[in-house]
């Protein structure tokens, strides 16, 4: 199979994720979109590893997974706490940290 297809898929997934982050208000959905972007990047890494014939890309993909897991732990905790105190998971409601 042509590796370019994987790259196209990766780009598509990344774009969907990015658009989701910018457009959606629900924090959980935004979060899932971030995960989508990370995984799109992982797909690109693995594809390039396959294309170049070394393992560097695959190693980075593992690192990304670890970082994504940590991020989920911290991020979900924050979202839950905010939801408990404000009764809302909208990212637009949590706008106190400003000028």
């Amino acid at each position: 199979m042509n590796p370019n297809n994987y790259l196209v898929l990766s780009a598509l997934l990344f774009s969907i994720g990015a658009i989701g982050v910018v457009l959606r208000r629900n924090a959980i959905v935004v979060f899932m979109c971030v995960e989508l972007m990370l995984n799109a990047a992982n797909l690109a890494f693995v594809t390039f590893a396959r294309l170049l014939g070394n393992l560097d890309g695959q190693v980075v993909a593992f690192f990304t997974m670890v970082v994504a897991a940590c991020e989920v732990v911290v991020g979900l905790a924050i979202i839950v706490t905010i939801f408990r105190s404000r009764r809302s998971a909208s990212v637009d409601d949590a706008n106190l940290l400003k000028y």
């Binding site: 910018v22 208000r25 935004v30 990212v91 637009d92 706008n95 400003k98 000028y99």
Partner: peptide, 12 residues
Amino acid sequence: RRVQTGYVRTYA
């Protein structure tokens, strides 16, 4: 400082 709106999506 008006640039700092507090909206996460703007920053993103």
